[in-house]
Design a binder for these strands. Structure first.
Lengths: 336, 336
DNA sequence: CCGGGTCTTTACAACGTTGTACACAACGTT
DNA sequence: AACGTTGTGTACAACGTTGTAAAGACCCGG
């Protein structure tokens, strides 16, 4: 056990509360007393017990970010942004992984470790809006992600439909006529996949191009192998596509890999564009065109919301914010 | 504020302690009482206050992993392993980013949030063995990484010298004669870079090949652009290398990118091998040969150490363990 | 040298939980 | 009928901290 405030008080010959006052920078402490206390503090290497401070009703200065999968570059890069910016708020950010399942997400939301953090940012994958609304825990919460527009919670999102449309528009502008989509999730409604599919369809419609269901390949987990498998399936079609919009960058990289192995040129034979804007895409061979979402903004907006909740209490109206995205055309569509 | 144990007791018409006994599964509670309490528990949606429980001397069931940079794929993948396996220990794992600086690392080690977690796993970059030994905080600690063999702390590491030698041996076995190394850190002694450089030199010596200082390129931050820049520098040499050992995969990918842009064939003109075994390398074009460290084992060993510390107390001798690595030859050295 | 203000320090209670020690039944034994 | 035993339940204190309220020290003008 480390030294407690009591030990420090005894050593400095003052009351416990005076030590507390010094530790917390309370203004009315004489210089002489302060010095005495400071010395005792150092000598005993005092560290406030956060448990006690917390119990007393205080704050821990810690907020948590829960993501489905930390090994996914998108979430890893997003988390890094959060860590950086949380520091500017004076918060320590801890990252938690829900592993994409309902259980993990529920655990976080229901506050298994509530009381340990001042606030919570969650990127939900599995839970429905309904389940989210049923949440009882009182810890301030901000949601990330596209779904759940109707949940009574602050949330930060991007316009997935517009993003997907921009990606598809880009392929159309290049003169492609058979544009495939990788990453649909037919059994899940209202999720990211559904929105991106909608944007894809909207772009086709706007260009008066036919929609061909064979060119839409579902994917379960959005990793590189899923893109690889999907691309392979597309290449086995009687009439393969001349462009592919992948619903995330990781699958796009899998697709690029499959194209190369089968001897197709990118972008001459098939152009590829992804979604997310992960660093990996910039260095891939060929570099990956993508819809880059502004992770810095996402973090900024989410933390501002959280700040408001934590400081202002639970009363304020739930708010919603959109982070911008940007089309980054690179070699996988432009060549060169 | 949520309901406290006191509210539950009142509602169930029993004492506070009886509620506590029910919550903690204390054996001697009659079925009737237990049922009454359970109902009150559910009705009030009771959640134990971790702060109070912690203050009382208990555990939080939470351990933290601190890595220098969560956006780096190696650490992201490593963290994912830790999350998974911590769950098997019944722990929730939280991830913390130190941002590679002394300040961040000190903050973690000195227990800014000690008392909030039962244990700590830290992958130090900046702090010296000396600074680590001076640590006062009592939270059980396990270190990851190669340095600090002499710090009086449990730690898990890999044999970097042997790994680097295996990588270089592989290039030698392919008949390469001018083998470069990317990632030295001349100003830092005893770190990962120094060990990998030693392994590289050992392999050359064993093969009776000359050591050429011009072929060793330093790198500061081990990211893709560092590898890119280093490779560019190597290609500008009067006699460029015919093989490169990069001290991590990220730099190897940067190097591959530079080679491609300059029109060099891999591996015909230059063979490339990395270190770490990140998923990205497997899907790169060409796929990256690497020394894959066993992240699963690292997590397993570290958590076992931590378990021992947390359960067994601080008395045991500090232990050291080595996680295995594996040479994965792929296209960037073998071709195909 | 007193009254009234300002500045400094203190005692006490409370936060929610659990370990300790004990009270009280109900039971079967002598 | 007195006895220990076993099973249930309770009161109390303590963990380390900080907010509240109030006491004490000091200074100034009258």
């Amino acid at each position: 056990m480390g030294a407690s405030i009591r030990d420090v008080a005894q050593r400095a010959g003052v009351s416990v509360k005076t030590v507390s006052n010094v530790v917390n920078g309370f203004p009315f402490v004489s210089d002489a007393t302060r010095a005495k206390v400071q010395q005792a503090l150092t000598e005993l290497d005092y560290r406030p017990n956060l448990g006690a401070r917390l119990l007393r009703g205080g704050r821990t200065g810690t907020v948590a970010l829960a993501v489905p999968e930390i090994s996914s570059p998108y979430f890893a890069e997003l988390a890094a942004q959060f860590v950086q910016q949380a520091k500017q708020h004076g918060w320590t950010l801890l990252i938690d992984e829900t592993q994409g399942g309902k259980d993990g997400e529920r655990l976080v939301l229901d506050g298994i470790k509530s009381h340990l953090v001042d606030g919570l940012i969650v990127s939900p994958l599995a839970l429905t809006a309904q389940e989210l609304s049923a949440r009882r825990d009182r810890t301030p919460l901000v949601l990330l992600g596209e779904r759940l527009i109707h949940a009574p919670v602050d949330h930060v999102t991007i316009d997935n439909v517009a993003g997907a449309k921009a990606a598809t528009d880009h392929l159309i502008a290049l003169g492609r006529t058979r544009i495939a989509a990788i990453g649909s999730q037919p059994h899940i409604s209202g999720g990211t996949a559904a929105l991106r599919l909608r944007g894809y369809k909207a772009a086709l419609r706007a260009a008066k191009m036919p929609f061909d269901g064979d060119l839409v390949i579902p994917a379960k987990s959005y990793h590189r192998p899923d893109g690889y498998a999907a691309m392979t399936a597309l290449l086995d079609l009687p009439r393969p596509p001349d462009a592919v919009f992948c619903f995330n960058d990781l699958m796009a990289i899998g697709a690029l890999r499959a194209l190369h192995e089968r001897g197709h040129r990118v972008p001459e034979d098939v152009a590829v564009i992804g979604f997310d804007g992960i660093e990996e895409g910039d260095f891939y061979q060929p570099s990956l065109s993508t819809i880059a979402v502004d992770k810095t903004q996402i973090a900024r907006l989410a933390l501002d919301f959280l700040r408001r909740r934590i400081d202002g209490g639970a009363t304020a109206e739930p708010q919603e914010a959109f982070a911008p995205f940007e089309l980054l055309p690179r070699q996988s569509t432009l060549g060169g």
